[in-house]
Design a binder for these strands. Structure first.
Length: 474
RNA sequence: GCCCCCAUCGGCUAGCGGCCUAGGCCCCCGCCCUUUCAAGGCGGUAACACGGGUUCGAAUCCCGUUGGGGGUACCA
């Protein structure tokens, strides 16, 4: 069997959300797993809604995700001549015909059918126009679309890789529009036409396109081409089980990138919506995904996108990074998002090791390590805990004295000294340390205390403890 | 209205007739790690939508019901 050819056909009409990314990913994983080829094709025939920005954005997002392509990017608007020639040929052969019905006539027809409880399909009225009638309409200056002749009887069926046998009644399809009155092709035509011309063997797309399959198969038949293998993926839903949209909060790939989600983590997460490797494997690298991905293991039921699991998974990927790579990713992230912290790469590099275990996203770095870059900003809730602690000033006093007397300023020595102070004061470490942590980091959730002190330096640490002491007693 | 798809814990899922008194992960809740914690460890709550079949045996197969989703455009 020749290697499969798949395509990624984004329509550049808006932002690229995680659902689109998931579809592209499955196509890509399938091709890379099987040694097949990936074609990138922008379906921009909708001139009104397609934008140049969306095209740039889509390419950018795909590149960031590490999803590459072997052919393209093609653009349907640059292939208009091809479609037009094909249309003329179809009309010539009687497989398609011009339709002069107005929007009002069509609406009235639909209403009538609705009332009669019949399917809302076009009656095919213009199909039987005589050449004279056609000429009369042309002469009257009536605009026309081109419709494809659908079989009046019988059924159309596919053996979908994820759904099995699916069948439609041809009579229920209606002659659909394949060319608009401005001469441009609709999705229903351009998409299968290009799939044929580009040698696409596997159409891997979301299930909302499933109902359009019989109409596309009619294009294959009209063009005398062999149909592809179909795999209809389950939808990616928002928490309300509805199609993903902006209402659902952060759902664009870029938003997650800006929050500090690693592309490999997003890819890993997305692979798990609608697909699984086995009953227990969750964390996987991209090469592992490529090696393990098969369409047969795609699950037919829709899935809800869960940002919390994505963040957890991102934490896993962050921790799995070698320290230097983690530091590099961090610096890169800070620079890209325009963080002022990026101006001090040495400091970032020093801070990286003490936060790597803590972060779920790179975006949390500032909250964890900001205290190392400038004056502390104290969290009110954290300070309230200090004030409520009767042993706070005792702890801070003991810490001040201990730290001032430490002979070597490194985490190990600090650790030993503070442990001794706990014993001396008769305080549990958690009690003694809490006020110190708040004093130097301004928060109760922070990197390890000893490492934090070491990096902050003795002078600044003592200054902050003194300040806290002063604020507590004064 | 008509057509199509889907149906296991709150979420993602494993399960393709007996291995299931249904497993894993996220979330949540406890406990532990004589340092917080969003890290780590241990433990816990929690599901086969319902009704009929088929079968010695059904989460798994069939039919129906209900529920959810999608489509029904000169959007893709």
């Amino acid at each position: 069997m020749p290697p499969p050819v798949v395509r990624m056909p984004p329509s550049p009409t808006g932002w690229f959300h995680v659902g689109n990314a998931r579809t592209m990913l499955f196509n890509w994983l399938y091709a890379r797993h099987t040694g097949g080829r990936v074609v990138l094709r922008f379906e921009d025939t909708d001139r009104v809604r397609s934008t140049e920005e969306a095209i740039t954005q889509a390419e950018d997002v795909l590149r960031w995700l590490g999803i590459d392509w072997d052919d393209g990017p093609h653009r349907q608007t640059q292939r208009l001549d091809l479609y037009a020639a094909a249309a003329a040929d179809l009309v010539e052969r009687g497989l398609a015909y011009p339709c002069y019905c107005t929007a009002e006539e069509l609406a009235a027809e639909r209403e009538r059918r609705q009332a009669e409880g019949r399917p809302l399909v076009y009656s095919g009225r213009c199909r039987s126009l005589t050449p004279e009638e056609r000429r009369a309409r042309e002469d009257a200056g009536l605009a026309h679309v081109i419709r494809l002749v659908m079989p009046a009887e019988g059924t159309t069926a596919i053996e979908d890789v994820v759904r099995g046998h699916v069948e439609w009644e041809n009579a229920l399809q209606g002659d659909h529009v394949i060319f608009r009155s401005d001469g441009t092709p609709t999705y229903l035509f351009a998409n299968p036409f290009d799939d044929i011309r580009m040698g696409i063997t596997h159409v891997v797309r979301v299930e909302d396109l499933l109902p359009s399959t019989p109409r596309q198969l009619a294009v294959y038949a009209a063009l005398d081409a062999a149909p592809p293998t179909y795999a209809h993926l389950p939808m990616v839903l928002g928490t309300d089980k509805k199609k993903l949209s902006k209402r659902h909060g952060a759902v664009s790939v870029e938003e997650f990138r800006d929050r500090g989600v690693l592309s490999q983590a997003l890819v890993n997460y997305l692979a798990l919506v609608g697909w699984s490797y086995d009953d227990h494997t969750t964390v996987m690298t991209v090469p592992e995904l490529i090696e393990r991905f098969t369409l047969e293991r795609v699950n037919p039921s829709p899935g809800v996108f869960d940002p919390e699991k994505l963040e957890w998974l991102n934490g896993e990927h962050l921790r799995a990074l070698p320290p230097e790579e983690f530091a590099a990713a961090l610096q890169d992230y800070l620079a890209r998002t325009g963080s002022p912290l990026a101006a001090r790469p040495e400091r970032v590099a020093e801070a990286a090791p003490i936060v790597q275990e803590k972060l779920r996203t790179l975006g949390q770095f500032e909250g964890f390590a900001g205290f190392l870059f400038g004056p502390v900003t104290t969290d009110p809730d954290a300070w309230a805990r200090v004030e409520a602690d009767p042993a706070a000033s005792q702890s801070l006093g003991a810490a001040r004295e201990t730290l001032a007397g430490v002979d070597r300023w490194d985490a190990e020595t600090i650790h030993a000294a503070l442990a001794a102070a706990c014993a001396r004061e008769g305080l549990k470490p958690r009690v003694l340390y809490m006020p110190i942590r708040v004093a130097i980091t301004g928060r109760t959730v922070a990197p390890g205390l000893y490492e934090s002190l070491e990096l902050l330096g003795r002078d600044e640490s003592l200054r902050r403890i003194d300040a806290a002491l002063g604020r507590l007693t004064g």
